[in-house]
Design a protein around this nucleic acid. Structure first.
Length: 807
RNA sequence: GUCGCGGUGGCGGAAUUGGCAGACGCGCCAGGUUUAGGACCUGGUUCCUUAUGGAGUGCGAGUUCAACUCUCGCCCGCGACACCA
């Protein structure tokens, strides 16, 4: 018997596919067949593949191979998200140029991916750190700048002291840097932003149409955008012309407002304040300089500004404070505090001895003096508005305020503009020049790309880009005088916000992509990646797509039609990581058991969206299965002549399996159950007599169904069974629906008594209800349970069950 | 705290328009094969019970002839957000 030499077989088939260009796809052909754009989130090229990657690619490749055999034109590309800190750190440490270092890492990644037998169209490979790619980041930046969607402003920003760079809000996780976990500090800095907030409402509304996205991701985006409806109400400052506008979602509680709070970073704070300015300044400095992370634990603090404001509804005078828990970035940077009905205000009021007035009373319970009541109810202590429900009062009070000119409806978002400036070297240079006379001058489109220089000193603190003489020596494109180049580079999330478009025309020199081609291939039919990008990459990409649509470059709103968020790969109850020492190296598994077994196990062990618990024994199980099939296929060589033998049951089972596997893959991406069904089929094939026609047919179908999961072994077996043909070129097996329907006509019908299974009777679907009930009742086992009792009810559900209800 | 996801044998997991709980795999047990180990093959394997039988999908109620599946109330685990007014 021939031994299964997996490593040899893998090499053989990978070579055959490569030489045949089996997975190349051209933009022209796509019009003849239905297209299918399948995409995995591209990796950061660390140089080392881990199990999370393998899972991601195993899911994608299986689907890609399945779709091709179903006759679709499949675009399935791979690329590398290659900008970022590690290359720069390597440069600092090892004195290697980031470009070289990155190139080597990418080569290493490609090698490892190729060993898995992934069917990418490698001709479309992209590397975001190449000037051919990042010049289009710059081009898009200039387009956004033209439209006012890119702008520069001074604001309080998140600063990561370890990465020595600023971060966008989305990149701060619980007050820490998303990448390195350092605590974030607050700094005031002038930086570049993309105006994602212009699309807040649109991005929110678009979520409703994304039926192919997991709810978890949509909910996260919805929360992140954080739309809330309310009103802006103006409080006049006593003996001053100034007013303080506040945002509230609860205008019904206006009469319960006993003080105002404004953010410590409010630009007007010193104009408003009349108290001890030194003390106030000290307070503000402390509040601003403390890190965001500390804010979580910190108690509420504030200081009276020495002025009072006037409630526009009841004319009451209330004190104005600044407090450390009020944000300038949200609403108007000032709030009306209603301590009886807002827990935060309650705590503040208790601490500083401020008035608490109940204005909302529900049927039961309500404000009890111990904590705020935040629900709805009927108004009290609110003058002419007493007795109205919260809902009615919100309308009436809003109407009153707007007719008096002291308030207006308002919608606020939690989403803030995307800060894209990074004080790093290994990123896309922001293509602007600062001229003393002309101000901010964009680089001319013809002068793109603004390339990263090579004369850089990495040994200094701060952004290495500042050390390049070549890079910084520049003249103003407008007036020709010496000028300064922007040395900040772009957030690497800019690269990933449109890479899925570049795959369509990866080598295009004149434009980032060709709109007609992109409009044909996009949106991505199936996108696969981790859920950690729920509000980062996925939100930014949706924003870019919309902006590009508004500029007329694409004709769709949403880049990703269906999204699958794969679960993590766990071992010993934790995510595989160096620090935990629980890493399983994919390379070792491939060497020992083969790429097909690695893929098979990872798909079989768990449904794709769930976390996967790694099991060495489970891998062995899949290895056994592959070998079992291999041996079965080898049997044919011992039988000189195949015996004709009919086996209707097996034929039916075979057809059912084809149907089941097809549906599991195409409808629900249920690879685990699809594989289980193929295993069942193989178990049944084993029981068939050797050397029969039907057995050989069974093996062929099993191998054919298995091929998307285990393409090398399946290809090898098929070649030996089917006259040296290539399985990946065969169309997907069909099933005979009439046979399946016919198979249903005689079956086992379960019979229960009081819902407990007592027997199964073999019936035909043509038998009458009465006949079946008699048959069931006279069954030996059933009779035992019903003979001494009164039958209250007889239930027959055709094709499903019989149930006798007895007393 | 808010929102979301989940809880089924010793383990990973099947079963959802309500209709045979535990497919498939692992592990385990018994037998075979082998000088031995491993590998391989055959059979068994939710729990209790000698059999007949009974119990059983986190807990407690409810709807139903029938509930892993639907409703209500809890408990536990995981994840996201976290003073957003």
């Amino acid at each position: 018997m021939k031994k299964l030499e997996h490593n040899k077989i893998e090499k053989k088939w990978q070579k055959i596919w490569e030489e045949a260009g089996a997975f190349k796809v051209s933009n022209e052909e796509s019009s003849q067949k239905d297209k299918f754009y399948l995409l995995e989130m591209f990796p950061y090229p660390s140089g080392k593949l881990h199990m999370g990657h393998v899972r991601n690619y195993a899911i994608g490749d299986t689907l890609a191979r399945f779709m091709r055999r179903k006759g679709l034109d499949v675009l399935y590309p791979m690329g590398y998200d290659a900008m970022g800190l590690p290359a720069e750190n390597a440069a600092i440490k090892g004195n290697t140029a980031p470009a070289e270092w990155t190139k080597k890492c990418i080569d290493d990644m490609v090698k490892q991916q190729k060993r898995l037998g992934l069917s990418y169209d490698w001709n479309r490979l992209i590397n975001t750190s190449s000037p051919d790619y990042y010049r289009w980041n710059q081009w898009i930046f200039l387009k956004l700048l033209e439209r006012g969607l890119a702008y520069r402003k001074k604001a309080a920003i998140n600063w990561c002291p370890r990465c020595k760079t600023t971060l966008a809000n989305e990149q701060v996780v619980s007050g820490k840097c998303w990448r390195c976990g350092s605590k974030i500090k607050v700094k005031i800095k002038k930086q570049w932003y993309f105006k994602i907030t212009d699309y807040a409402d649109d991005l929110l509304a678009g979520l409703d149409e994304l039926e192919g996205w997991p709810d978890a991701v949509k909910i996260q985006q919805r929360n992140w955008i954080g739309r809330s409806e309310g009103a802006v109400i103006d409080f006049k400052i006593k003996s001053s012309k100034r007013t303080i506008p506040v945002f509230t979602t609860r205008p019904d509680t206006l009469c319960g407002s006993t003080f105002l709070l404004i953010a410590p970073t409010h630009p007007d704070i010193f104009d408003i304040a009349r108290g001890n300015k030194e003390k106030i300044e000290d307070f503000i400095n402390e509040a601003v300089s403390s890190s965001i992370a500390e804010k979580d634990i910190k108690e509420k603090k504030g200081i009276y500004l020495g002025v009072d404001a006037i409630n526009p509804l009841n004319g009451k005078e209330v004190p104005v404070y600044t407090a450390n828990f009020v944000f300038m970035e949200y609403g108007t940077g000032a709030i009306m505090s209603v301590p009886a009905h807002d827990q935060r205000d309650y705590e503040f009021a208790r601490k500083y001895g401020l008035d608490i007035i109940e204005v909302i009373r529900p049927e039961e319970g309500g404000y009890d003096g111990k904590k705020a009541y935040e629900g709805p109810g009927k108004l009290v202590n609110s003058g002419e508005f007493n007795g109205f429900s919260s809902k009615e009062a919100i309308k009436k009070i809003s109407r009153y305020l707007s007719s008096a000119g002291t308030g207006r409806k308002s919608v606020q978002y939690k989403l803030r503009d995307w800060l894209i400036s990074r004080q790093r070297f290994w990123g896309t240079p922001i293509p602007v020049i600062y001229c003393e006379d002309c101000g901010i001058v964009p680089v001319n489109e013809d002068d793109l790309p603004v390339k990263l220089p090579e004369d850089v000193d990495f040994s200094d603190e701060g952004n290495p880009l500042k050390t390049s003489v070549k890079f910084n020596r520049v003249t103003c494109p407008k007036c020709g005088k010496p000028a300064k180049r922007e040395t900040d580079t772009m957030d690497t999330f800019v690269d990933s916000s449109w890479y899925f478009l570049r795959y369509v025309n990866p080598k295009e020199k004149e434009k980032p992509f060709v709109p007609e081609d992109v409009n044909r291939w996009l949106p991505v039919n199936q996108y696969i990646g981790g859920i950690e990008h729920a509000v980062l990459h996925l939100l930014y990409s949706r924003f870019f797509t919309r902006a590009l649509k508004d500029m007329g470059f694409v004709n769709f709103n949403e880049p990703f039609e269906n999204l699958l968020c794969q679960g993590m790969v766990l071992k010993d109850g934790a995510k595989m990581s160096k620090s935990k020492g629980n890493i399983v190296d994919p390379g070792d598994i491939i060497k020992e058991y083969g790429a097909d077994v690695a893929r098979l196990f990872i798909l079989f062990a768990s449904p794709p969206a769930k976390d996967l618990k790694w099991s060495d024994d489970g891998v062995k199980g899949c290895y056994r299965f592959i070998n079992k099939l291999w041996k079965l296929a080898d049997e044919k060589s011992t039988a000189s002549e195949l015996i004709q033998k009919e086996d209707k049951d097996f034929e039916l089972f075979l057809n059912r399996t084809i149907k089941g596997v097809t549906e599991d893959i195409s409808e629900d991406l249920q690879f685990n159950t699809a594989i289980a069904k193929i295993m069942e089929l193989v178990n049944r094939i084993k029981k068939l007599p050797a050397g029969t026609e039907i057995k050989r047919r069974g093996v062929k179908v099993a191998v054919s169904l298995l091929s998307p999961f285990a393409p090398h072994t399946a290809g090898e077996i098929w070649e030996s069974l089917a006259k040296n043909t290539r399985l990946d070129k065969e169309s997907w097996p069909e099933y005979d629906m009439s046979l399946i329907k016919e198979g249903k006509s005689i079956f086992e019908l379960p019979v229960t008594v009081n819902g407990k299974l007592r027997a199964k009777i073999t019936v035909s679907d043509t038998e009458s209800k009465e006949n079946l009930l008699d048959k069931a009742a006279s069954n030996e086992k059933v009779e035992k349970f019903i003979k001494d009792s009164e039958i209250i009810k007889k239930i027959y559900i055709p094709g499903k069950i019989i149930n006798f209800v007895i007393k």
